[in-house]
Amino acid sequence: MRRMNNHMELTFPAIAPNEAFARMAISAFLVSADPPVSIVAEVRTAVSEAVTNAVVHAYQGAPEGAVTMRAALGGGLLRVEIEDAGCGIEDVPRAMEPLFTTRPDEERTGLGFSLMQSFMDAVRVTSRPGRGTRVAMEKRLDAPAREAT
């Protein structure tokens, strides 16, 4: 792990192929800090879940929506935000309950926020109905990867 400061911001259409793009982008961003592979894997999963939520829920598949991913490195800490300007979430605590989903018919599991919370050190969700949602996450890059819970 190398301690260094860096930041980036990317905006891309809320389409499913960009879930993989977002994972690749955060992986590439982390290369300069050289964290353990297990930590990169955890961050990739959390980012994938957050971007998928934007694609599936915020814009409900409408491709004109945009997702912005911001990331900052400093003092051995990664901060990453996934923000959309979609429909927003009426009840954030309920949306974050394990297994809660509005789309069981589409084989959504309701595990997205649970995985973000398991894999990251902090997850903060702010949302305004009709305006959008921001998921802000933090991860220490020098800590051992968490055990599965």
Partner: peptide
């Protein structure tokens, strides 16, 4: 090499 909760949903389906 990678799977997220969408993969879990696909398998449960």
């Amino acid at each position: 090499s990678f799977m997220d909760s969408s993969g879990i949903g696909m398998i449960i389906g």
